[in-house]
Amino acid sequence: MFTKKQRRINWILVAVLLVLSIFFLFPVIWMLANSFKPDAAITSDMNTIAAFIPPAPGNGFFDNYISIITDTNFLRYMGNTLFYAAVLIILSIVVNGLAGYALAKIKFPFRDQWLMVIIMLLIVPTETVITIHFLIIAKAGLLNTIVGYILPLIVNPFNIFLFRQVFVSLPDDVYEAAQLDFCGPVKYFFTMVLPMSKTVVATVSVFTFLNVWNDYLWPSLVFTSSDLLTAQIGLNSITSNENTTMGQTLAVITLVTIPVIIIYSLFSKQIVEGVTSTGSKEG
């Protein structure tokens, strides 16, 4: 039970957070409202409260969206990105999960030192290794291919660390019981370890999706063919085109934001649990 004083503090905190969330939300509301308007209306509403109010649904309400979908390849770029994200989620779970499992449960020489190296890799910014990735992919002749795009993104030290921290608390006797139930180590990983660690699997999936969806630098280096481009590059090429209207720009930004909002609102609980449960706990 809260005391009277604590309750008052809680109310003040809620009020402050509400004000802050309005500050964060207002550009989003503005974008959403204006994405349904023609450029003339956007300009005329600019300095009034009407800038935050969408027009009444009617003729031409979805014009900006329809023109983006019909006149550009943006839907294809979104489809490409969803495909890359799906492939990378699966590969991330398998590869980083297996690495995390080995570091958590299999005894091998210098295991703890390996873990230290992986933890140290967490502080290396992506930008510092991207040139090396590019050179390797170029030398391998994989530029402008899906494999060349995906390959360097599979192994992620942060994901390995997340998996390791969750797997280390899995009870050993479940593995022993599974062995007596004729379950081999690979089957154990896929049918026991991953289902028992749904939270971290969800967390890694969401993080991988967000990384792929929001990544601009790496796909812009690897891809030149317009058939393979991702949503972020598509967004850039559409918005930087001088024929694109303000309304269309806002519509395409809205489109690119929707999947992120959906994913985050569906899995926010798992993300918080996944990150906070990375401390060892008795299972």
Binding site: P171, D173, V174, A177, Q179, F182
Partner: peptide, 20 residues
Amino acid sequence: VAPRDRGIAMVFQNYALYPH
């Protein structure tokens, strides 16, 4: 011989059930 090939069944102190 590997545990699975010894022809044994085991009951563990902490049950070791498959939680899912």
